[in-house]
Every structure is written in structure tokens, then in C-alpha cells.
Design a protein around this nucleic acid. Structure first.
Length: 270
DNA sequence: CTGAGATCCTGGGGGC
DNA sequence: TGCCCCCAGGATCTCA
């Protein structure tokens, strides 16, 4: 499931391959995957060109010469696959395809159909779900401590909430909590300053390492060239049910929290 | 403000 | 071998 490092990897790949391309054709095979303002037609983008590709939260953002933007959320199984040349075949479960004037193509595919491609108008203000970017200078240990103490939630639930911090998902939250030795069900307002500092450092370090590893490929994730990431080899707790904790040798447990699998070490995460 | 539960989907795994 | 059932889960919605 693409989280911040996977989306960052995809955005960087597309920045290298699609910037400067002019949109020649758009094929929509599953209209519900599109969200457009005022029922605007996606074909308004014909003739437009890509000026930049960036990431905001878990969205890949295609910035266009017209000032419009396409914000693409991949949810669990979404993919953005770039084809350098026109191909009669498409990736499986392709729902929207862009063909550029040079014949190259960008395909938006999603097996489970949870992803969305959102057209943002020139005048529209859009900031994903408003959370702070965890790799921005504004995200400090002090900021995190303040955030934790402004709420009374279970730690994992707050970290997953995109209104507060952008881009964290199940994998990296489990990993960060393990590294910081904090229980996923600990209440946010009880986290001490040293613990908040540990958690801040863990979040930043793990995201940076995962970006360097081009993301985590467990089930479905591949980048825009179809290549898998490698961070799955560096996971410390995620998916390691009943295996020994790398820190204290106790067994990792899997619990359900907010209807999601949660992995933690009951001995050294307090 | 917070959480619980349902919803959307389909491929894959477990059980028989 | 084949078939049925169930499950994974990010974001959003309703309801408490």
C-alpha cells in the first residue's frame, strides 16, 4: 500500500519521465475513478502539458501548464505506470490512460478501484487533508509533542490521521512506534517529551531510509517503471507475527486497532 | 472531540 | 482439484 515513501518514489520517477509532455488523448475506462469540479470533463486537459510532478501527503500531483492540477491517490493497490512508447496492451486494471503527443503513455491502474484521480481547477485551493509534512522543517519534536498533547487518542490512530500528519500509513506507523519503543495504544497526551523526541526521530529516520530504498513492496507496490522497492527487507515489526523482537527477543504480537493489523513488541513498547 | 462500525473492491489464501 | 468463504485496508461516512 503506497505511503509517503512509495508516493515520493513514484512522483520522482514521473518527474523524470513526463515533465514537458503534452496530453494528446485521455481514455477513461472507469469514470468513477475521476473526481472533477462541477462535473467538468476531463477532456479539458487535452492539449495541456505537464510542468512538474510533486507529492503532497499520499497524493501524486501532476502540475499542468494551464495551472490545473491532477491529484492522484493510489489508496492500497493503485499504480501509475509510465510506458515510453505506445503499447496496444495496458497494465491490468487500467482505468485511465493518458497518451502524450510523443506516443508515450501514463496509465492509472487499480485492482481494487479505491484510488481516485482528482482534477483541481486553477482557482481551487487544495491542500490534501491538511496534515503537516513529516519531512518538512516545520515538523519538529516540539511540534509533535504539542500535537500529541492537544489530543486524547491512541498513538497509532493519531499518527494515521491525515488531518494531523501527512503520509504515514500502517507500515511506517508500526515501524516508527517500534523504533521509539512506544505502544500503539498509548494515549497521546501521556507521551513524555523524551518519548515524543524519540518518536519524532523515528518517523523522520524511517521515512528517509524508506525513500532511499525506493519504498516497501509487500503485495502490490511498484514504482512508475514497474520496479519493486526494497524496504521490505528492513522491516522490524510489520508482518512479523510470533517472530522474535530484534531488540528484546520476545515475540511480536499482531493485534487489531482501528480495524487494521497492528504489529508490536509487548515487552519493549510501553 | 473521539471512537466504533460499515462501506467500497478484488485477488488470493485457508478450509474442506 | 475445485469451490466457497473470508480477508486485506485508506479514507469517508453515519451514528453514538
Amino acid at each position: 500500500m503506497p505511503e509517503l515513501p512509495e508516493v515520493e518514489t513514484i512522483a520522482r520517477g514521473l518527474a523524470a519521465t513526463t515533465v514537458g509532455k503534452h496530453i494528446h488523448a485521455i481514455d477513461v475506462f472507469l469514470p468513477k475513478m475521476l473526481i472533477t469540479p462541477n462535473k467538468q470533463k476531463i477532456n479539458i486537459l487535452l492539449g495541456d502539458s505537464i510542468t512538474a510532478v510533486s507529492r503532497r501527503a499520499k497524493y501524486v500531483v501532476l502540475n499542468l501548464a494551464s495551472g490545473r492540477r491532477l491529484a492522484i491517490h493510489l489508496r492500497m493497490t493503485g499504480r501509475l505506470i509510465f510506458y515510453p512508447n505506445t503499447d496496444v496492451s495496458r497494465p491490468p486494471h487500467t482505468h485511465v490512460s493518458f497518451t502524450f503527443t510523443d506516443g508515450s503513455q501514463l496509465h492509472f491502474a487499480d485492482m481494487r478501484q479505491f484510488g481516485r484521480l482528482r482534477l483541481i481547477d486553477v482557482s481551487e485551493t487544495w491542500d490534501a487533508d491538511g496534515g503537516i509534512e513529516p519531512l518538512s522543517p516545520e515538523f519538529t519534536a516540539e511540534y509533535l509533542w504539542g500535537l500529541l498533547h492537544a489530543h486524547r487518542a491512541q498513538l497509532k490512530n493519531l499518527l494515521l490521521n491525515q488531518n494531523y500528519i501527512s503520509g504515514l500509513g500502517n507500515i511506517y506507523v508500526c515501524e516508527a512506534l517500534w523504533q521509539a519503543r512506544l505502544s500503539p495504544i498509548k494515549l497521546t497526551h501521556t507521551v513524555s517529551r523524551p518519548a515524543a523526541t524519540r518518536l519524532h526521530r523515528a518517523i523522520v529516520q524511517i521515512l528517509e531510509k524508506a525513500i532511499a530504498a525506493r519504498g516497501t513492496s509487500i503485495d502490490d507496490y511498484v514504482d512508475s517503471r514497474g520496479n519493486a522497492g526494497t524496504f521490505q527487507h528492513s522491516l522490524q515489526v510489520y508482518g512479523r507475527t510470533n517472530k522474535p523482537c530484534f531488540r528484546c527477543k520476545d515475540r511480536i504480537v499482531r493485534t487489531i486497532q482501528a480495524q487494521r493489523g497492528t504489529w508490536s513488541c509487548p515487552s519493549c513498547q510501553k
